[in-house]
Structures are given as structure tokens and as C-alpha cells.
Design a protein around this nucleic acid. Structure first.
Length: 590
RNA sequence: GGUCCCGUGGUGAAGUUUGGAGUUCACGCCGGCCUGUCAAGCCGGAGGUCGCGGGUUCAAAUCCCGUCGGGACCGCCA
């Protein structure tokens, strides 16, 4: 018998590696019975499946081996008789003949078919029997793709001189930002560790420590509500570099992303383009624009300057979308019910309302508000949007942020293609604002990213006078409308850090209490540094063509944070609680 | 905390709008037949607390209320 890298004590080959070049070889395979086709006592076909694929075995003596039984089959690789080649199977030119079959383990029938049909099975059942779900080709492909991406990322980071460092999972609670998972201390009852939302603090300390370049494929934990692109636990490529500017960081991370993309798809994407945050908001209405399709927001404020229509006259910013009838016939032809639903959606997103107009022949506009607009306004509107007969126009009038975000969301709702369609459009969104909005209670500006982001050097002068228009040296990486990750150049000067804290309303004493262990080291010579982190789950999901990250995570939680397989979370023994100095409260009555 | 959709033999669906016997289809399962199939084919069979609880009704998978579970989204995710 020949042997290969997949050979073990129980097999000489994997199922999927056999082809015409092996004809004549005596081989031994081990795997699961994917399917059995019986033709009487003297002939049966058993499709044997392992991680690598499926091999048809011809059984002459009617051995009993049913679905998902674990068996070992020894046989001779034989070219299939003329007319019986299966072109749909990579191994379809050959089959195993003169077989002897050994049952290694019988099995109960699986609750769902271990093939493509399980894509239709309720996800809860797939998760309850995840070990069976992962036997399927789709999950095998996704998990292996993920492993390849991880390994390409490691290689790219290693090559650039980044040092992989593991940072603690048990750390002090830092109540800013995402809600944390807490871990009670046994030795200090009443005290708690927190699990890291990200290794942010540790990696900056590693820069102070002179490590120069750090990375980690790190698990992060956030106790926030789950979504298609969010799990309690997720994985980031986390990196930090010393003595760098923004371009150094973007370049280093780009190399890792390119390497990951190449590992997944076989080809490197073109250089990642850049857009400023302000342009992204203006043109696409989101800070994570999907560049795979057009339908950009059109500025209309000037068109309605001095209008008699009250809803428009009072607004600081008016923008519109043109739903092109040729490209999106269904959306453009929307009926009254759907337009009402769209208006509700706009209101849910924060708009006061949504103005829709249907374009008729010769620029005629059919709309509940048409009677409030002058002919000149209508003509200017049609011209600005380039509207043609059959198009649907959607207008929002509000302050700038609301106008942009509402239309941006509607643009996505109406026209965004499925994640697996079209090209990969990576984009760096740069020049994020340092502060976003004002805390309603403290009246102080709120950090857009985190309070350690370096302000843009050109905007330092207006930090106190015009804080909301100060840019940060902060940037996001976006792929096909998904935020993959973000980063920034950090503040390394204690004086500037104090200035930012003051703007946020954090005095020296509070800063010391909350971030002391983090700020103290910066007094001992912190190098200029910056870094980045991007979500591996999201990147792999998109590269795998999956709409949600659960499909690229071996054992994910449901939207309510449960694991249908292990039934976690669950109650614990009273003695365990006692050791930790904990007592549970009764559930609130309804 | 909120909005919307879903829950029917092991699996997927139809039935719910307009209440009338657990009815139907496909896959799977069990048995039989079958020597070239490949999601094999043919014949037969078994398998159900219609998520759960309450209400309305002579009668509820179907209508009403509540609840649990799943999904998408808003809030949240510095």
C-alpha cells in the first residue's frame, strides 16, 4: 500500500484525494457513510465521506452500513466503467472495488441530512447538533477558510516584524464603552475581574515597553445585544506599532488584509481606496459605505433655499436619493403600502418624515407634497437628481447628520446586494471626528472612538472652541458595507491627554482613578504609536460569502446569547456561589 | 427596552385569512424487491401534546390574551 500525508494507522488516504492517477492502488479509507444505494444482495454503492470529500465504494456482499456509521473500507482504486463516471464529483472518475468493510462505530440516523439540504434546516437545530452540522461540506469549507486566513495574517504580521504577544483575559473593569462580562474573584469576594472588550490598554503598554510592534489574533468579549455580525465573543487581529504615522499603520494592516484575501480567494484585491468620514457621510450616509453600488445621496439644500414648503424651509440640510427605474424596477414602482412602510422606517431611524415623489413624463412629479413646491423648485429638483420617468425620489430634510444617516440606511435597504455578490470593495474611512455629539446630561462632547485617539494636528487650535469639528487621527476599514475594524494614532503626550480629558469633563483625579494604571506608564517615556484592530469573523464571513458570522464560528451563540447544544448559560451550585461571595436575586416579577 | 417575521411526525413545507375528525406533499426512518447507481428506483409500513399555558366556542393547528424559543432590525456595540 502507498501512503500520503493524510495516512494514519487506520487509513492510507483521504477520500477526496483519490483520482485516476491512483488506479490500481490498494488503499484503505476511513470515514462516515454518506449514502448507500442497494441493488439487491450482490451489489451496493457506499459513498464514504471524510473531511476531504466523498469516494464511491462498490460493495459486493451487501454489508450492513447505514447513514453516518463510521467505517473503514479497504479496496482497489478502479477506473469507473464507461458511462458511469460522475462529473459532479472530484473523485467521480474512480471507485473502490473488491472492498472489505469494517464497522468502527454504528450510529443513529442524524436529525437532518448531512449535506446541502441542511442549509434549509432551522438554525437552532443546526446549532443543537453543531457537531453534525460541521460534518457538512459548507462548514468544513468555512472553518478551513478561516484557518487559512488566520495563518496568512500571522505570516504577514510576522514578516513585518510584529511580535505576537498574549495579553490577559482577566483584567480590571473599565466601565467606559461596551458592557463587560465580569468574573467574580474567589480570593477577594465582592471583587471582580472583567473580560477584555479588546486588548487596547495592554497593547499600548507594550509600546511603552519598547516592543515596537505587537500583534495578536485576540478574542474580545462584549456583553451587548447580538446581531448577524455580532457575537458576545469575537476575534480580532489586534496590532500596535511605535514611531509611526497614519500611513504606516494603514500600510501594515493593508498587507495583512491583502494576505488574508489572497489566502481566501486566490487573488489579491486592488490597493485599498480611501474616503474621508465627511465624504462618506455626505455621499453614502453611513460611515461604512458599500461601494459596490451607486445611488449616492444628492445635495438639495440650495434647491429649496427660500421655499414656501414649511418642512423644507426649516431644515438645515435636504438631500435626496434617486431610485433608478431601470436598475431597481421593483423598488421604483413601489406602491402606497410599501411607501408608507418606508416612511415608518425613516421615522424609526430618526427622521421627522420622508418625502417621496414618483417621476412621470416630462418631469412631472406625483407626490403628496408636490402642491407645496414651485415649478422652478420641481425643475431644479429633477435636474439635480437627474430624474427620469418611472424613477422614485426620496427626500429627507433635517439636520445634516439625520438627513445623511436616514437616507444612507434607505439606500442600503433598497439597493444593497447580498454580501456574496459582486467585487470586494475595501475602503479606508479616514479623518473620523474626534467627538461625536454631546452627552445630554453632562453637556460635554463624547469621544467618537475612545479618549486616547490623537486629534488631527491641524485641528488642535479649535479643540476648545469648536470641538465637534475636530478631526481625529482615526480610521476604519470597511468591506462591502461591513465595518471590519478601526484604529488610530494614540495620544502619547500626557499634557494633550489631560486636555482631551478636560474636554470630556474628566478631571485629573477622576482620570487617575479610572485610568491610572494606564496613564502612569505614559510618564515614563511613551513613544508615538498607533494601531488597529479588525474583526476576523466579519472578514472571513464576507470572504466565505456568508451573510452572518455564525456560519464561520464553530460554536456560536443564538441572538439571545444561548448555546442550544450545551444549554449555556445555566445555574450553578449554591456552594459555588458561596465560595465567590455571591447570592442571586429572585427574577423580577412580571 | 422596542418593532417586525417565524414555530405543524426526525427534517422541510402546505393547511391558519373564512374554526368543523391530525388532513396533505417531499425527504428521512423501518420492512420487502432490485447487479451500475450516484440526493438510485419500485412496493408496503411506522411515526404527531400543531412550541407551551389560559380564554372564546357545541367545536381551535386556525380566533383572542399571555409566555417560551428562533431570526432580522432599532436602541446598545467608547
Amino acid at each position: 500500500m502507498t501512503s500520503t500525508s493524510s495516512s494514519t494507522a487506520l487509513r492510507t488516504h483521504s477520500c477526496g484525494e483519490l483520482n485516476a492517477s491512483h488506479v490500481g492502488s490498494r488503499v484503505r479509507l476511513a470515514g462516515w457513510v454518506a449514502r448507500r444505494r442497494e441493488h439487491g444482495d450482490k451489489l451496493a454503492f457506499v459513498d464514504l465521506r471524510d473531511y476531504s470529500g466523498v469516494m464511491q465504494c462498490v460493495i459486493d456482499d451487501g454489508a450492513d452500513a447505514r447513514s453516518e456509521w463510521v467505517v473503514q473500507i479497504e479496496g482497489t482504486v478502479t477506473a469507473r466503467p464507461a458511462g458511469t463516471v460522475n462529473a459532479n464529483l472530484p473523485t467521480g472518475e474512480v471507485e473502490l472495488t473488491d472492498c472489505s468493510l469494517t464497522v468502527l462505530n454504528a450510529a443513529e440516523p442524524p436529525p437532518f441530512p448531512i449535506d446541502q439540504r441542511a442549509d434549509e434546516v432551522d438554525e437552532n437545530i443546526r446549532l443543537k447538533y453543531r457537531y453534525l452540522d460541521i460534518r457538512r461540506e459548507r462548514m468544513q469549507r468555512n472553518l478551513r477558510l478561516r484557518a487559512n486566513v488566520n495563518s496568512a495574517i500571522r505570516a504577514a504580521m510576522d514578516e513585518q516584524g510584529f511580535v505576537e504577544v498574549e495579553t490577559p483575559l482577566l483584567m480590571p473593569s473599565t466601565p467606559e464603552g461596551a458592557r463587560e462580562f465580569l468574573v467574580p474573584s474567589r480570593k477577594e469576594p465582592g471583587s471582580f475581574y472583567a473580560l477584555p472588550q479588546s486588548p487596547q490598554l495592554w497593547k499600548q503598554l507594550l509600546m511603552v515597553a519598547g516592543l515596537d510592534r505587537y500583534y495578536q489574533i485576540a478574542r474580545c468579549l462584549r456583553d451587548e445585544d447580538l446581531r448577524a455580525d455580532r457575537q458576545y465573543e469575537f476575534t480580532q487581529l489586534d496590532a500596535e506599532m511605535s514611531f509611526v504615522n497614519k500611513d504606516d499603520v494603514l500600510d501594515a494592516i493593508s498587507r495583512a488584509v491583502m494576505a488574508a484575501a489572497r489566502a481566501a480567494t486566490g487573488e489579491a484585491p486592488p490597493p485599498i481606496e480611501r474616503i474621508t468620514w465627511h465624504d462618506a457621510m455626505n455621499r453614502f450616509g453611513v460611515d461604512k459605505p458599500d461601494l459596490r453600488f451607486g445611488m449616492e445621496l444628492v445635495e438639495l439644500t440650495q434647491v429649496f433655499a427660500g421655499t414656501g414648503f414649511k418642512a423644507f424651509a426649516a431644515a438645515g440640510c435636504i438631500k435626496g436619493l434617486r431610485v433608478d427605474a431601470a436598475t431597481y424596477p421593483e423598488a421604483a414602482a413601489m406602491g402606497r403600502n410599501k411607501l408608507d412602510a418606508l416612511t415608518d422606517r425613516a421615522k424609526q431611524l430618526g427622521a421627522k418624515g420622508l418625502v417621496w415623489m414618483k417621476v412621470g413624463e416630462a418631469g412631472a412629479l406625483d407626490s403628496p407634497v408636490a402642491k407645496f413646491l414651485s415649478d422652478a423648485e420641481k425643475a431644479a429638483l429633477v435636474a439635480a437628481l437627474g430624474a427620469k420617468a418611472g424613477d422614485l425620489l426620496l427626500l429627507v430634510a433635517d439636520e445634516w447628520t439625520t438627513t445623511c444617516t436616514v437616507l444612507g440606511q434607505l439606500r442600503n435597504d433598497l439597493a444593497r446586494p447580498p454580501v456574496h455578490e459582486g467585487p470586494y470593495r475595501y475602503v479606508w474611512v479616514v479623518d473620523f471626528p474626534l467627538f461625536v455629539g454631546v452627552n445630554p446630561t453632562t453637556k460635554k462632547p463624547q469621544p467618537g472612538h475612545h479618549p486616547f485617539c490623537h486629534p488631527h494636528p491641524d485641528d488642535l487650535a479649535k479643540m476648545e472652541t469648536d470641538p465637534l469639528n475636530v478631526r481625529a487621527l482615526a480610521y476604519d476599514l470597511v468591506l462591502n458595507g461591513w465595518e471590519l475594524g478601526s484604529g488610530s494614532i494614540r495620544i502619547h503626550e500626557p499634557e494633550l491627554q489631560r486636555r482631551v480629558f478636560q474636554l470630556l469633563g474628566i478631571d485629573d483625579e477622576t482620570a487617575d482613578r479610572k485610568f491610572g494604571f494606564f496613564l502612569q506608564p505614559f510618564k515614563y517615556g511613551a513613544p508615538p504609536h498607533g494601531g488597529f484592530a479588525f474583526g476576523v469573523d466579519r472578514l472571513v464571513a464576507i470572504l466565505a460569502g456568508e451573510e452572518n458570522i455564525r456560519e464561520v464560528i464553530a460554536f456560536p451563540k443564538t441572538q439571545s446569547g444561548l448555546d442550544p447544544m450545551t444549554n449555556a448559560p445555566g445555574p450553578v451550585e449554591a456552594t459555588q456561589l458561596g465560595e465567590l461571595g455571591l447570592r442571586t436575586l429572585p427574577k423580577p416579577a412580571n
